[in-house]
Design a protein around this nucleic acid. Structure first.
Lengths: 157, 157
DNA sequence: AATGCCTTTGTATACTTATACATTCTTTTT
DNA sequence: AAAAAGAATGTATAAGTATACAAAGGCATT
């Protein structure tokens, strides 16, 4: 049974609370903040706690790293990255414009490049936008349809 | 002016490329990866680069945290950056494709954007390529000519 | 050219974080 | 109950990162 002292679980909850409300930049500082909750631990323990909580250190101090995995890297296939990152698509003549989640345009573009579809002349990716240059305008709908296939719900998983 | 050495900008572009494609867990390891690009720097410089790039260290290595582009110190005009970074240009229908020195596409594109030429709908820049979307294909040559003016030798300084 | 300011980078080192090992306490197995 | 196995945590230190300082070069002004 749990002891009278503060459990690991409670401590980690306090840590999450603390870093959510204030900017903490070191485990030493975190330890000091925890003292106000009557919790006293060493830096080593905090290092372990932060790892378990999935906390990372950003420009503004520690933050919970739960958001959509910024970079699933490795090599999923085209379908996977399209389904995961693409928000919308449209075409304009020789060009298809793809909107993705911020920061992931290059990931998607790289996969499209790799597919080497003959109708595509080239792609270029910014932060959240991809331009796909086509050889001829009339293939736009064909390519769009091919890409959209994987976006439809109930389309495998 | 072209420099013999690798510029900071190019180096940071390589860093971004490297951490996007593989999992890097230390600045030491990053330095080793950069050697394959012929770039040799110390850990201290990489620490600074990562800060400037807004890179953080997550469970899967370094990742880009935020695209807080400090925006190229509003310096130099369009002519200067075109002369300095552009390698070649061509058009494809309503699209102009500009090739630049590695890592400098954003700089050039930003200046083109700033010029606000009415014939240009928008631009998007990758690592060394820019797509310029035009309202209508027939203005391509006009824009190309205007850009190429500054590339001609003996064109002021 | 000389001066001064700014940028970039390396060196050395301080600061921060992770981890091997040991200890203590709890739980499970025999 | 004793022994074995695990969990949690501290200690000491290794591993990793940031930064003060100085050197070097670019650029503008004089």
């Amino acid at each position: 049974m749990p002891r009278v002292e503060v459990t690991k679980k409670v401590r980690q909850a306090r840590i999450a609370q603390l870093i959510a409300r204030s900017q903490v930049f070191s485990q030493q500082g975190l330890a000091e903040g925890l003292v106000r909750f009557g919790i006293q631990v060493t830096q080593a323990t905090l290092s372990r706690d932060l790892t378990e909580l999935g906390v990372i250190k950003g420009p503004h101090g520690y933050e919970v790293f739960s958001r959509t995995e910024p970079e699933p890297r490795a090599n999923g296939d085209l379908k996977r990255v399209v389904r995961e990152f693409v928000r919308s698509m449209d075409s304009a003549d020789h060009l298809i414009v793809v909107q993705t989640d911020p920061g992931n345009a290059h990931t998607v573009a790289a996969h499209i490049d790799r597919a080497q579809w003959p109708e595509i002349v080239g792609t270029i990716a910014g932060d959240d936008t991809i331009f796909i240059a086509l050889k001829r305008p009339r293939v736009a709908n064909k390519i769009l349809a091919r890409l959209r296939e994987v976006l439809r719900p109930g389309n495998g998983h």
